[in-house]
């Protein structure tokens, strides 16, 4: 038996020393994402203004779903209150631009700060509850903010909201249709990349550990409550950015941005796409938004069709579309003798 003091053992992990994946393969996912983003830049050239609008919404809802998943999939905390953060971002645009003529940069900073603050408050308020009670408490908190927006008519316009929000502060090249789509694409890619880095950071890793076992994390010296609060704050900040993009796109904000239905939608995106996978919720948001548009062109009963899709997903794709795809891929790799995947694949 070799002791660390008697000899100097090779502490380099075998998998790291001989990873089994060649360097080009390791870079392949990153290169694939870059190519996809480059191709997405040309969506407006390939479609009309309506589909460019739809694609813009897909992107921002994808960001909302990815931010939501920092709490739901990776943090293991069910939330029905994310519309609050989305709405906060929206009202940061509405109130900031119409009252104080804020620039987009100021709006974005304010939305990030307000979203993070609201997220931290949600996280602190929810420290002692789990499961269905967490779902109910987040819903209640979001409804409280909805009520605040509803009754503070002087600031928010109440149920009518704030219409005709100008995009004057945005550079002319990204103010309308195609340009705004590209701006949204850049912001969303940047935010998703930041969320990816957060998820891969020691902090994100610790949040996953808290999801798996709070007591084990405590015994390892961590404060699960603080980690849960941070997860909510990060999620709230990026959800608010999605709200900013939505309101600049729509040109108005109302209490509808804070409706519980948005919270329910984003939950569906995550479950349908695969909450245990980083890109699952984004995929879910794109798929559901696309389905809504596509099915509704053929039938007025598109909600029924979507309902059937949800039921089928719940029954046959327990880990979402991406989860199913990943397990099939792993199965194929195992059969071909390529070995198992990495934890990154298992979690993202």
């Amino acid at each position: 038996m070799t002791t660390p003091t008697s000899t100097k053992p090779d502490t380099r992990p075998a998998a790291a020393a001989a990873p089994g994946r060649s360097a080009p393969r390791r870079w392949a996912p990153g290169a694939g994402v870059l190519v996809a983003v480059a191709l997405l830049m040309f969506v407006p050239a390939a479609t009309d203004s309506f589909y460019t609008f739809v694609a813009t919404r897909m992107l921002l809802l994808g960001l909302l779903a990815t931010a939501f998943n920092a709490v739901f999939g990776f943090g293991g905390m069910s939330s029905l209150g994310h519309a609050a953060f989305f709405g906060i971002g929206g009202y940061a645009v509405g109130i900031g631009v119409t009252r104080w003529d804020w620039s987009p940069g100021t709006v974005l900073a304010a939305a990030l700060a307000a979203g993070a603050l609201a997220g931290a408050v949600f996280g602190l308020a929810c420290l002692r509850v789990r499961g269905i009670y967490l779902l109910l408490l987040t819903l209640a908190l979001a409804q409280a903010l909805f009520g605040l927006a509803f009754y503070q008519t002087e600031w928010t316009g109440g149920d009518n909201g704030i219409p005709n929000i100008p995009r004057d502060g945005l550079p002319a090249a990204v103010r309308e249709g195609d340009g705004y789509y590209r701006l949204t694409l850049v912001v969303v890619v940047l935010c998703v990349a930041l969320l990816w880095m957060y998820q891969r950071s020691p902090l994100g890793m610790s949040v996953v550990g808290t999801r798996e076992s709070e007591s084990r994390m405590s015994a390892a010296g961590y404060r699960p409550g603080a980690l849960r609060t941070v997860a909510f704050a990060v999620s709230g900040a990026f959800s608010a950015v999605a709200g900013v993009l939505e309101v600049y796109l729509q040109g108005s904000v109302s209490t509808a941005s804070m409706s519980w239905q948005i919270s329910a939608d984003v939950l569906v995106y995550a479950i349908l796409g695969g909450a245990r996978h980083f890109f699952g919720p984004f995929l879910g948001a794109v798929a559901v938004t696309g389905l809504e548009v596509w099915v509704s062109t053929y039938t007025d009963r598109w909600m029924t069709v979507l309902g059937v899709v949800y039921v089928v997903t719940a029954l046959f794709l327990a880990d979402g579309v991406l989860g199913r795809a990943a397990s099939l891929l792993r199965l194929a790799r195992t059969k071909s003798g390529a070995g198992s995947g990495t934890s990154a694949e298992a979690r993202t």
Binding site: P13, M205, G209, E212, S213, R216, R276, T342, S343
Partner: peptide
Amino acid sequence: RVFPSLSVK
């Protein structure tokens, strides 16, 4: 007791 979805590292 380990954290099952975290990697060994």
